[in-house]
Amino acid sequence: MDADRIVALVTAGGIELTDRRRNASNDGWSLSFANGATVEVGDDGSARIGGKGAKAVARLLDPPAAPRNA
């Protein structure tokens, strides 16, 4: 799942994107959302969800089905 797809699915659920930037290692995107969730999206399609709102974001993303580092 790429960053655009994740943003589309999460924002459709009423959780606004608050920050999007390339990560420090320049191999993916760091996304932040209004509920406090963060998603690290690799250019290889991997995704790690964290932050306060991780569970709510995980429910909107399928896959991944559950937070991996919440």
């Binding site: 606004e16 608050t18 209004a34 509920n35 406090g36």
Partner: peptide
């Protein structure tokens, strides 16, 4: 556009 509060409760 949306920024988080500097105080808890905050995202």
């Amino acid at each position: 556009n949306t920024m988080q509060p500097p105080y808890q409760p905050s995202g």
